[in-house]
Design a protein around this nucleic acid. Sequence first.
DNA 1: CCTCCTAACTAACGATCGTTAGGCTAGGCG
DNA 2: CGCCTAGCCTAACGATCGTTAGTTAGGAGG
Lengths: 196, 196
Amino acid sequence: MVEISRRRAIEDVASDLFRERGYAATSIRDIARAMSLQGASLYAHVASKEDVLWAIVDRAAGRFEVAADGAERDAETRRPGDPAEALGALTRAHVDVLTSDVDAAGVFVHEWRSLDPGHRDAILSRRDAYQARFQRRIEDGIAVGAFAMTDPAIATSTLLSAINGIAAWYDPNGRLPANRIADHLVELSLRMVANP
Amino acid sequence: MVEISRRRAIEDVASDLFRERGYAATSIRDIARAMSLQGASLYAHVASKEDVLWAIVDRAAGRFEVAADGAERDAETRRPGDPAEALGALTRAHVDVLTSDVDAAGVFVHEWRSLDPGHRDAILSRRDAYQARFQRRIEDGIAVGAFAMTDPAIATSTLLSAINGIAAWYDPNGRLPANRIADHLVELSLRMVANP
DNA sequence: CCTCCTAACTAACGATCGTTAGGCTAGGCG
DNA sequence: CGCCTAGCCTAACGATCGTTAGTTAGGAGG
């Protein structure tokens, strides 16, 4: 976690605090205090408090999107047209992004409500598009008989909620390494939608 | 939704706002404005802002606990010793409580961090005990071969996250009635842990 | 040496926060 | 009629909020 810029250091500290206490309950002076600075000093690097939140959320969203791109490409190379392979790869990619920076990912998952209306709308449509990628793979699986369920939309929401739950308890120094957790979540997720 | 007391009306309005914007982002004056009152007027009925949050969270927790009691009793009557029956009943009871008052349940799920340290600790141990009831049924199922998974603790967390995800999108006036949603979640949950 | 840049500082702004104090009004009941 | 209570009001408290302005310290480059 080397500071490449002062701006980025602020975002990292803010991610930590926003995740722990929430955006509204964290003041600019709280962030500054965690860096041994005065509150006003942050405004040399940052336009506003919401600007910091947006930077964190936007970057986290981008990391999820890029990871999903790679996962779908890899799955298609490995087992073309296999919905379980594709959905498993998407799930694993999601868990990887989540565990590689729990603070930022947790802020992305829980604090997007605090964004300005414009930013909130933007992130909501990106989130919808992201969720649609999962739902598409689930519908593919139903079409070929690999998956089975009554309502794909609810299944997709439920699947993503299940994975995102990791952000509530994951500890980078905990008993389980991130890739073990990913194994587990992929197993549970695929079983949830599989045709029994 | 008849007001039985002024105090309770405040808690209902607060549940709505706390769920929509979060506890820290909701002011006493916001709550009062939603009731066409002055902020200070609320203090005739309420000791503090945290007092309102605690009342909401405490009551919601109690409803989950009572529902789980009934579910385990019913399941034991219907199919004694059947882990799938018991876990399914617990899941359905949880969904029922959640959908019967999404606002309060959503506050319970997401806003317990904002409680005073004492109240937060109290709610955390109750939540642990509640979660342990689910985990116990999962372990029962593994013991008799009905369920199968690598890590029951992770499976329990994941299952509850999946169900609680409902709070993020459930709309009492939406396309699906609550009992349909419960059917769905029970199906997905049991398949997630079942021995394939 | 002078200049510029980065990064921090102190001081203060108006707004809003949770909360307290004290007073007014309307209705029920003797 | 007089009292009580419930429910709400206005006014204000000190604290904290996000943010702006102006200044200072130190190092790099000409």
